[in-house]
Write a protein that binds this DNA or RNA. Structure first.
Lengths: 153, 153
DNA sequence: TTACATGCAAAGTCTTTGCATATTG
DNA sequence: CAATATGCAAAGACTTTGCATGTAA
């Protein structure tokens, strides 16, 4: 059992235990694509009614430490967690809140630039880029304050 | 009074009042370069002892609405505000927490790419890029867990 | 049986809101 | 005077901590 066993294996490698809660949290993150701790909690509770939000936070921390999940700050409020195999850069629309995803390699050139000019090693997997999505820019590319959402904060 | 009058002028244009607090908050943001509401508050209080943190938040909101300041989420916790004339992209080291700044135009190519491929209009002025700074990568480019800070969150 | 996990409650940040008071135009 | 801004206190969102209890190697 290769891929599927990676939670058990990885936890063991770190001297940590495999628990139903941790398994459920990982499953939830994988299913949801990207989700806040709150959202993960709701998903987990569909299966295990009694899991505490504290446990969700702790499980996410553990899973992040061992490299199975990762979080990104998409702007205001809670961060979103996603599975490590699910690499992408987030495009966050500060107009409507929509989140799009693009492959990390779009940033290769930028990463190279930063490395050379600043010695900075960009981590594209943690990234959120804010701006205005196609829908909000409108068909004519004009200003469309359709359902303005308060600025991303 | 050209540049310097822009707070008064801009507030008026928006039907808002010029108050000492707003002036102080703007001054603080300009002096500090980039700062959290908390830091702005401390700075303001050097001059006006009694200003309430709530007022700082509200002043920052107003100043942002009228376009004189802008905020960025550098990772975990409080956002940082900076003056609009002070445009740059933040490079946040998730190792040591150091914040470097680079000109926005480094992102021109990426912006063009996103515009063409996704219809996404990147707002480079809001940006924080996370990664590892030169110092933390070490002279040899190796792993230097000198003063590891818990992951940017 | 010992080390690690969980649940629960309480506390901690950071931020917003409601309302009375004060201030500006 | 009338519209806004401020201060203060309370509440709200999100997260962490302490500690007793539970559970697996």
């Amino acid at each position: 059992m290769g891929e599927k066993g990676s939670l058990r294996t990885t936890l063991h490698r770190h001297g940590l235990r495999v628990t139903p809660q941790r398994q459920l949290v990982l499953d939830a993150v994988r299913e949801l694509g990207h989700a806040t701790p709150e959202q993960v909690c709701r998903q987990v509770r569909d299966t295990a009614h009694a899991v505490n939000i504290t446990t969700i936070y702790r499980a996410l921390d553990v899973l992040e430490e061992i490299g199975l999940v990762r979080h990104t700050h998409l702007g205001h409020g809670a961060p979103t967690y996603s599975a490590d195999e699910h690499e992408h850069v987030h495009l966050v629309c500060h107009r409507c809140g929509e989140i799009d995803e693009v492959p990390c390699d779009l940033l290769d050139d930028l990463a190279e630039l930063l490395r050379r000019r600043r010695g900075f090693e960009l981590d594209a997997t943690h990234l959120a880029l804010s701006g205005t999505c196609r829908a909000c820019r409108g068909p004519e590319g004009a200003d469309h304050p359709e359902r303005a959402v308060e600025e991303t904060r």
